[in-house]
Design a protein around this nucleic acid. Sequence first.
DNA 1: ATCCCGAGGG
DNA 2: CCCTCTGGAT
Length: 243
Amino acid sequence: MPGTGKRTNEGTHGRKDAPARGKAVRRSVRASLLPASERIGEIISRLQRRYPEARCSLEHRDPLQLLVATILSAQCTDVRVNLVTRDLFRKYRAAGDYAAADPAVFESEIRSTGFFRNKTKSVIGMAQGLLERFSGRVPDTMDDLTSLPGVGRKTANVVLGNAFGKDEGVVVDTHVARLTGLLGLTEQTVPEKIEQDLMRIVPRRRWTLFSHLLIHHGRAVCIARRPRCDACPVADLCPSAEV
DNA sequence: ATCCCGAGGG
DNA sequence: CCCTCTGGAT
């Protein structure tokens, strides 16, 4: 086999941190901002006004579809995931369909989402777990969901919050990790620790909404490659904003 | 801390 | 070419 293409991959989360933006960060002007706990309310309020339509952007009709879509979403845009699942969900309708899938065929079907070998093992293994331990149904608790292969806290939080309407945790994806760091809502870089900080300062009833707001903001304005601080509704509440 | 991996933006 | 995209397992 073409074996290891040894692509120089880099980590996934928490890029070392790149304060670099060519210019030495000039945050002295906003050095005197209120603590996170006193800015969070206004931040959520303004983002909600800006993105009133913020919701889960992974297309799904039931918990199983959302679970599969979320597993496929790792390091991949939601647009591409939706493109793949549109055909996938037509063929695989129940846990048993995924559990009985031919790995080679499934790999080719989700290939464009990247990490296709790992994702195939995760989806098929997850489906087999559903059949063996949950009667083929997607469980609605954090412990049961994370007991499934390929399902971590992030994926479990997405399913719990969007398919079951339960705010069990805060979804910390690449956008949430980046933006909360820039906003000075946490000093942590490990997703789980970021989530712990956010669960303390964000009202529980807003946990799911909060993630959607940051994800939308991260795509539209606070873009990783080039944040548009000039168009940001919370720039005056952000210690990293470069006017 | 590393690896898995394709696709699109700049 | 380099970076980023709704991560999880080792």
